[in-house]
Nucleic acid binder design. Structure first.
Lengths: 138, 138
DNA sequence: GCGACATAGGTGCATATACACCTATCCGAT
DNA sequence: ATCGGATAGGTGTATATGCACCTATGTCGC
């Protein structure tokens, strides 16, 4: 056991905040059975339209194989569809299904409630600025 | 595909920043074969001394069972020891081994380098303030 | 057309995280 | 002494994340 005040770890502090924030959003989205990661993924697809897995991963700044696996629960629930590309037989195109679009519509009010709750207590512009600065610094 | 600018998700933005920051710290700690989560855990033990799993989890704001599993790789490497408590046979006391203390010493310079790199680019007080505000708001 | 390299994707493995459910034990009230 | 609730911990399952390694296919130079 060392003594003296320990210098706080910036990374661990952020991880802790992310755990808390994620739990808060996940709880808000519970009624529609989506996690915030899954809802965000559906929103990407809504915004980008049908897209190969690798490009979707790049957009979300996720590792390619992570994206592949994150799609699994959404696939199982029929919220997204994976179809082979016409141009490139290697590529798999991810797209929203009608059920996926409905899930976004159903989940959005709950997500907005979570956003509103947090944004009312912490300036979202500050959070964004810190997040972007950290990404740039990493 | 909906149109219009999408309102950014505060939670997803933070998750993304955390992924980037964690990758940066993990890369810095690579020479000693520790991840930032593991290093932080060793530091908790160093600061708190021998402690039951549940109390350690509470200190780190982690779910109890998560803490149990996060200890596994450290146990396997002999950096921490788990021993039954004398007073309460239900409790398992987690403690740093000599190898664990050596690992902290070996890892600290690499961790400091990662901290310095980030802290030079993003004010750590701001990050701390945002993190604490988010935790309080969650 | 063929060979070298790049690109799209998958699988195995490991860690990080949390919930539901289980057992064992302690402790206070009767 | 015992019974009931609280507490310490483990296990099963699921998601989130990334690395190493593999296959398949496209593309470009010759």
């Amino acid at each position: 056991m060392s003594d003296g005040p320990a210098e706080p770890c910036t990374c661990s502090a952020l991880r802790r905040a992310t755990r808390a924030l994620t739990a808060s959003y996940d709880a808000a989205l519970k009624p529609v059975g989506l996690r915030v990661t899954q809802f965000a993924l559906l929103r990407y697809l809504d915004r980008l339209g049908p897209i190969p897995v690798s490009r979707l991963a790049a957009e979300a700044a996720l590792e390619r194989t992570t994206m592949g696996r994150n799609l699994d629960p959404l696939k199982r629930r029929g919220l997204v569809a994976i179809t082979p590309s016409a141009e490139d037989p290697r590529a798999r195109i991810v797209s929203l299904t009608d059920a996926g679009r409905e899930a976004i519509v159903a989940a959005t009010p709950y997500w907005r409630a979570a956003q509103a709750r947090i944004n009312a207590r912490v300036d979202p512009a500050t959070v964004s600025a810190v997040a972007e600065a950290l990404i740039a610094a990493s």
